[in-house]
Every structure is written in C-alpha cells, then in structure tokens.
C-alpha cells in the first residue's frame, strides 16, 4: 500500500472512533441538558454524574427482544437502520480536521458530501415502509418529503460558500476562511444552512418524522432492541457530523477567527494540535446548540414545514447566491 493510503486509513479510523464515541457522549449530554433545561436532575445514577448511562442504555438494548412485524419486510426491516449509519460514516471521509489532516482530499468534496447525505433518507423511509404499520409509513413518507425539500436550500447555501473559495474542495473551502469566516461574509447563507442542517438531521423543531403526539414513535414505532439502537446512534452521529459541517463551511473549520491577520507561524505539530483543539471546541459548541434548540423550540406543523422550505428558504437562498455571485464578480473585475 502506498504511504498516502496508509495515512488516509489511519485518519479515517481515528476519526470514526472519535465520532462514534462522541455520539455516545452526546446521548448522555442531551439527557443531562434536557434535565437541566426542564429543571430536573436527568440520569445521574450510573457512574460519576451518570456518565456511564450510555453504556447501560446499550446493554439494555442488547438484551431487548428483537421483533420484526409479521407482515413486514424482514430484509428491508433489517437493512434500514444500517443505511443512515453508513452515510454518516461516509461523510467523515472528506471533512478536514486540521491542516493536512483529512482522510480523502478529493476535488469534488462538496458534491460528494451532498450526495452522501442525500442517501441517508433511505434508512428512515424504508424503515417506515418495511414495518407494515400506518404510523411508521407516515413517518417514513414525511421523512422522504422533508429531506428532499431541505436538501435544496442546503445545497444553495453551500454553493454560496463555494463561490468564495472558487473550489469544490473541502480543504480549499476551509483555507479560504483563514482571514474572514464565511459566517461574516455570508450570514444569510449561514442561517439557511443551519436550519436545513437541523431538518436533515431530523432534529427538533423539524422532528416531524417521530412526532409522538401524532405518530406514536414515527418511523421507529415497530423497532426494538439493537435495530432501534442503530437508528438512535445514527441520529446522534448526524448531530455530530452536522455540527462539523456547520463549522467547516461557515466557522472557518480549524481556523481561529481572523487567524490570517494575527496568528504567528508555528511548527507543523503545534499547528495540528491547535487546529484539532479549535475544531473540536467549535464542533462541541454546535452539538450543544442542537440540544439546546431541541429542548427550547416547539415542533412545526407539517404543512408549515414544507412551506417554509419551498417558499421561504429556497427563494431566499437563490437571491443570496445571485447577490454574492454578482458582488464577487464586480469586486474581481473593478477593484482588484
């Protein structure tokens, strides 16, 4: 194997390990923060401050009986929970974590990312269909409609970031933000992206897919045991990866604010360590934001959800894109 391949594999596996464990910790953090926001303790019995709660949850799920509905599709019912996990793992491949630390530096990185995330919808939709239950089916259908609708504003918001970098390569997008983060240059794009990211992760206020008042459990009504656990894991992996994408596209990735102006040159190792710390802190902040929003905002109605995407976010995104494109063209032609 070539040295580049070995480096890529090492980075990919370490990143995978970190993301999987972060997902487990986020589950715990969510429950504790929910408790804090609702003025109750939350799980605090297993281990010090309840930190071993995810472990206990997984053990419980492992010993649950695994049920497939009799008239359901057994094969699809089994495959469905795996799909969102695969897409979440595949997305890690192109995210740059520090200077030079990226598993795969491909020149269509942004498109790859959008393509991979667009495949995630199959898991929820098929899970709903294969359960042979009206509640699950409705959850699955909602998810299909919602994901397709929110992919467009998300794509356009990302495209407006691509304009600044003039490249579809993730590393170049991050490096274009060394002086000014995209959130300062493209605030409307950021708002659109973060809303779409919440919707794509099926998180409140867009968790219509599992609206318990209307649909019992939504798409995972008929799931139990580790299959349900896999869906659960996928949701939190998507939270972590959604936060990473927000950081990468709009908050300068591994760059400190305005780093190009004041940050002195450092040795390679020091840069990588600083980058990793900066990236993790930013990611954790957005994970916190995901949790915070979930326990603060009420859920949308479904028709509002669709209207919001098609008649608000999408036109706004297109206008934002055209304005930024024209501004960049005028700047390049007349001022530089």
């Amino acid at each position: 194997m070539s040295p580049e391949l070995v480096t890529s594999l090492i980075i990919a596996f370490v990143a995978l390990f970190v993301v999987l464990n972060t997902a487990a910790i986020v589950v715990f953090a969510e429950r504790r923060l929910a408790g804090f926001i609702q003025n109750r303790p939350g799980p605090n019995r297993v281990g010090p401050i309840g930190i071993l709660q995810p472990l206990a949850d997984v053990l419980k799920l492992l010993f649950n009986e695994d049920i497939t509905p009799i008239y359901g599709r057994k094969a699809l019912h089994t495959i469905a929970p795996i799909i969102p996990v695969i897409t979440a793992i595949a997305a890690i491949a192109v995210i740059p974590f520090a200077t030079g630390v990226v598993a795969s530096d491909i020149n269509v990185g942004v498109l790859y990312l959008l393509a991979v995330t667009s495949m995630g919808v199959y898991g929820v939709t098929l899970g709903g269909w294969a359960s042979n239950s009206k509640y699950s089916l409705l959850g699955g259908l909602r998810s299909a409609a919602q994901m397709v609708s929110y992919e467009l504003p998300m794509g356009i918001a990302v495209a407006s970031c691509v304009l600044y970098a003039a490249s579809l390569n993730m590393v170049e997008i991050v490096d274009s933000q060394e002086f000014w983060w995209n959130v300062f240059r493209n605030p409307i794009g950021f708002v659109i992206f973060i809303i779409a990211a919440f919707a794509e992760a099926n998180r409140a206020p867009f968790d219509l897919v599992e609206a318990e008042q209307e649909l019992v459990g939504g798409f995972h009504t008929e799931y139990s045991g580790m299959k349900f656990g896999t869906f659960f894991l996928a949701e939190y992996m998507h939270v972590v990866i959604g936060s990473m994408l927000i950081v990468t596209f709009f908050f300068g990735g591994y760059h400190l604010p305005f780093a190009g102006y004041w940050l002195p040159e450092m040795s390679e190792t020091a840069t990588i360590i600083l980058d990793l710390i900066v990236f993790s802190v930013k990611t954790l902040f957005f994970v916190f934001l995901f949790i915070w929003v979930r326990w603060t905002l009420p859920r949308f109605k479904f028709n509002d959800l669709m209207n919001y995407s098609w008649s608000r976010l999408l036109p706004l995104g297109i206008i934002n894109f055209v304005v930024i494109a024209s501004a960049i063209m005028i700047y390049n032609n007349y001022f530089s």
Partner: peptide, 26 residues
C-alpha cells in the same frame, strides 16, 4: 469521471429515486 459519478448519486439515487419511492409508498 468524478463529476459524473457524484452527480449520478446526488441527483438520480439521492433525489429522483426518493421521489419514486415516495409515490410508490403513497
């Protein structure tokens, strides 16, 4: 043909087929 490959997944597998499935299920 990286561009073609990615767009194939993004547009056909990721968007159009989801709508197909949506209609079939509906």
């Amino acid at each position: 043909a990286q561009f073609l490959a990615v767009v194939q997944v993004l547009v056909y597998a990721g968007a159009i087929m989801v709508l197909f499935l949506f209609v079939i299920m509906l």
